[in-house]
Design a protein around this nucleic acid. Structure first.
Length: 492
RNA sequence: GGUGCCGUGCCCAAGUGGCCUAAGGGGUCGGUCUGCAAAACCGUUAUUCGGCGGUUCGAAUCCGCCCGGCACCUCCA
């Protein structure tokens, strides 16, 4: 087997280049996870989905993947806290909000939203990471890192905390382009902290004995800075130098810039060889923002009847490096496509049961299409191309009357496509065990009506047949006459 | 004010110097099938890529200006 190259845009060198792993065939990958102070919205999931697709693509070419995706369960601050820590803590703020009333404390709140996040993760059919470390489980290492950075002269203590001295790290700004010079040029209201040596210095530890989550450190009571958590966790699970690090485009600066500065100062080695950032999702042409109140959540969309796989499909239907516009129409389009895969899946299952003898008429073509889909993914995750190839394959499967041999090829194709893109079916069939809103009594009545309509059809009483169909339609029950004369129904 | 990204048919969205007289999906319209529907299948739908100039034998793709949208600029994926 020839070695496949996985080409991926690298935000650091600003070009598409092969993803190189330190250990051949083993990708060590870190993804910045959410702060669990609220439900993760579909914008969050868009960036997690990019990471998921990287993992799936790597697995598809036979790589081993060690994937770490953290959970930020320390609140940090909502506002600029440079001066005096008046910025509110996100978790504390959430606790005081209306939704927060149900929780006794921040820990409970974090636990609740973490569980919700994991549920949504599964619903959208993302691959499970190997490790999901939590910031609060690694506070000790974060304190040790702070001490070591002070010892090595990269950080210093002030009355308000421990700060990283940006001037000590010449490469600061290489990822985001926000070098010291360009930062100084930008005129912006910045709260001044006269204790800091440079206004660009960032917090590794915040002193605060009023904080709802606090730990004791050599600097007294307080809590760790946001950036140090990822530096520490990446190192703990993946080593000093990792192959790939991903996150949303907003993470690039300051978060990832600061991670690089801290980690490389700590180890003296390159922190990460390849950086990947996902562009923001827009909703109905607008930015998702609190002020516009247009946040979409997985559970909210599902409550309105959305199929989670369709949500997934809609979120990966554009290339990850460009803004994608999420609309209701887009979700409907996605649903139509997901149904195509489902039908192909069913056609294959049926043909595997009762397929006729005969040659495999689709195998070669399907194999070719899968190859093209995989190539598209290997080419900087070109999901639109990959999806179009997958759809072509599904079309071929549904079009033909499948022989047993063809069905086997179809099954192989759909399995491969599902492994690569996750849009054919859920692994555990957890999908909608259709909480049948219809009771068995209802069901008996519906079946009785269907029989009545059949009788009317035999009698060629089309008026009666149609009125029965309409009657059921009024109850949101759709009848479908199949080509073999049977009738199926579904409630919408 | 600084930095970066983007603008493709009715909608979503690939393509980033010649294989583009521009993928794929949705929708539309026409057809096959079916009592009629639905589904499925076949065909149709951009001489054109925000505007204006320029470079080139050749541009949606490169350059300039303009218009429009987005992101980051110290803790929002």
């Amino acid at each position: 087997m020839t070695e496949k190259q996985f080409r991926l845009y690298d935000s650091l060198s600003r070009k598409v280049k092969p993803l190189i792993t330190a250990e051949p065939g083993h990708l060590r990958f870190y993804t910045c996870g959410p702060t669990v102070y609220s439900y993760a919205h579909i914008g969050n999931f868009r960036s997690f989905l990019s990471a998921d697709l990287v993992v799936r693509t790597a697995l598809a070419i036979g790589w081993k993947v060690t994937w770490v995706s953290n959970i930020t369960d320390v609140g940090h601050l909502t506002d600029d806290d440079i001066a005096d820590a008046t910025g509110e803590d996100k978790m504390e703020k959430a606790l005081r909000s209306k939704e927060g009333e149900q929780f006794h404390n921040v820990w409970e709140l974090a636990e609740y939203y973490e569980a919700a996040y994991r549920e949504d993760w599964k619903l959208l059919n993302l691959v499970e990471p190997d490790v999901r470390p939590k910031a609060t489980q690694h506070v000790r290492e974060q304190i040790l890192a702070a001490e070591e950075l002070i010892e090595k002269g990269f950080a210093y203590e002030t009355p308000t905390g421990v700060y990283f001295s940006v001037d000590k790290f010449p490469g600061y700004g290489k990822l985001s382009g926000n070098t010291q010079e360009s930062l100084r040029k930008g005129v912006r209201d910045v709260v001044l902290d006269e204790n800091k040596k440079d206004q660009s210095d960032f917090a590794i530890w915040k002193k605060d004995d009023k904080h709802l989550m606090q730990w004791f450190s050599p600097y007294g009571w307080g809590f760790p800075g946001w950036h140090i958590e990822c530096s520490v966790m990446a190192r703990a699970y993946l080593g000093d130098t990792i192959d790939l690090h991903s996150g949303g485009e907003d993470n690039k600066f300051p978060h990832h810039e600061c991670e690089i500065a801290q980690s490389e100062s700590l180890t003296g080695k390159p922190f990460c060889e390849h950086w990947s950032h996902t562009a923001f999702l827009q909703v109905n042409g607008q930015k998702m923002s609190k002020s516009l109140g247009n946040f979409y959540y997985v559970r909210g969309l599902m409550a309105k009847g959305a199929d989670p796989l369709a949500i997934r499909f809609a979120l990966i239907s554009g290339v990850y490096r460009k803004n994608l516009n999420f609309t209701d129409q887009g979700l409907e389009d996605a649903k139509t496509n997901i149904d195509r895969f489902r039908r192909a899946d069913i056609a294959v299952a049926e043909a595997l049961e009762s397929g006729s003898n005969g040659a495999d008429t689709v195998g070669a073509e399907l194999e070719d299409l899968y190859g093209q889909a995989l190539d598209a993914m290997l080419s900087d995750l070109n999901t639109p191309i990959a999806i179009s190839k997958a759809l072509e394959g599904a079309k071929i499967i549904t079009r033909e009357t499948l022989s047993l041999e063809s069905a086997k090829s179809g099954e192989r194709f759909l399995n491969l496509v599902n492994d690569l893109l996750g849009i054919v079916r859920h692994p555990e069939d957890m999908v909608m065990v259709e909480e049948s809103k219809t009771s068995t009594a209802d069901e008996a009545r519906i079946l009785e009506r269907i029989e009545a309509r059949k009788a009317a059809k035999v009698a060629k009483d089309w008026g009666l047949a149609d009125s029965i169909r309409q009657e059921l339609l009024n109850e949101s029950i759709v009848l479908t006459d199949n080509s073999d004369g049977s009738v199926s129904w579904s409630s919408t």
